[in-house]
C-alpha cells in the first residue's frame, strides 16, 4: 500500500496512539497546573500574581524542545531513570499549564465586575461568590479557547521527538529512514495529525460563534 508495508503503516498508527496519550497527559496535567496559575494571575495578592506571572513568562519565553531537554536531563540528574514519556509529560504539563493559566485568567477577568459586587450584596462569602457566581460564567467563556488550545497541545507533542519519545513524528522519522519515501510517510503523518486536530479546530470555532451569538 503506497509503497509501505502494513507493518510500517501500523507502526505509524502506534506512534499516533502515543501522541494521543501524551496529549491527554499534557491536557490533564496542564489543567491541574493551569487552574492555580489562573487563580494566581487573577488574584488580588501581589505575591501570587508575581509568582504565577514568572512561571508564565518563563514558559512562554523558552522553546518547548528546550523545556523538554531541561526536564529530561533534570530528572536524570536527580537520580531517577525515567522513560521519555514521563519527561515529555512533565514538559507538556508545564507548557500547557502556563498557557491554559493565561487563557483562563482572561476568562475569569472577562466576567463583569458587577457580578462580584452583586454576589457581595447577596452576602455570599468570597469562596461562594467565586464558585457559584464567577466560575460558571467564566467556564462558558473558557470553552472555545480551551478547545482551540487542545489543537496546540496535540501539535506540540511532536517536539518530544527531540528526547526520542516514540510518538507519531518519531515513528514517521524512523519509517522514512527505513523506506526513504519522505513524501508518502510525512504526508500520512500530516494527515493523521490533521484528522486529530481539524475536528477540534472546527469545534472551537463553532463554540466561539455560539458564544458570540448569545
Amino acid at each position: 500500500m503506497l509503497g509501505l508495508t502494513i507493518e510500517q503503516i501500523a507502526y505509524l498508527f502506534r506512534g499516533a496512539g502515543w501522541t494521543i496519550v501524551l496529549s491527554l497527559l499534557g491536557f490533564v496535567g496542564g489543567t491541574l497546573l493551569g487552574l492555580p496559575v489562573a487563580l494566581g494571575r487573577a488574584s488580588k495578592s501581589r505575591l501570587l500574581r508575581f509568582a504565577s506571572g514568572v512561571l508564565v513568562q518563563l514558559v512562554q519565553g523558552i522553546p518547548l524542545p528546550v523545556i523538554m531537554f531541561v526536564v529530561y536531563f533534570g530528572i536524570s540528574i536527580a537520580g531517577f531513570d525515567v522513560p521519555a514519556l514521563v519527561a515529555a509529560g512533565v514538559a507538556m504539563t508545564l507548557y500547557s499549564g502556563a498557557y491554559l493559566g493565561e487563557i483562563w485568567k482572561g476568562c475569569i477577568l472577562a466576567v463583569p465586575r458587577t457580578q462580584w459586587e452583586a454576589g457581595e450584596c447577596l452576602a455570599l462569602t468570597k469562596t461562594q461568590r467565586f464558585i457559584f457566581v464567577i466560575l460558571p460564567q467564566a467556564l462558558r467563556i473558557a470553552v472555545p479557547p480551551t478547545v482551540g488550545f487542545l489543537v496546540q497541545i496535540v501539535k506540540n507533542t511532536s517536539y518530544s521527538v527531540v528526547i526520542n519519545f516514540f510518538d507519531l513524528t518519531y515513528s514517521a522519522k524512523v519509517i522514512n529512514n527505513a523506506t526513504y519515501k519522505p513524501f508518502t510517510v510525512f504526508t500520512i503523518a500530516a494527515l493523521i495529525y490533521f484528522a486529530i486536530c481539524f475536528p477540534m479546530s472546527l469545534l472551537a470555532s463553532r463554540f466561539d460563534r455560539r458564544l458570540h451569538r448569545s
Binding site: 489543537v151 517536539y159 521527538v161 513524528t169 510525512f186 504526508t187 500530516a190 495529525y193 490533521f194 481539524f198
Partner: peptide, 10 residues
C-alpha cells in the same frame, strides 16, 4: 492543523 516539524521534514 499539522505540526511545524512534520512540515519541515516533508
Amino acid at each position: 492543523n499539522t505540526p511545524l516539524i512534520i512540515q519541515v521534514f516533508w
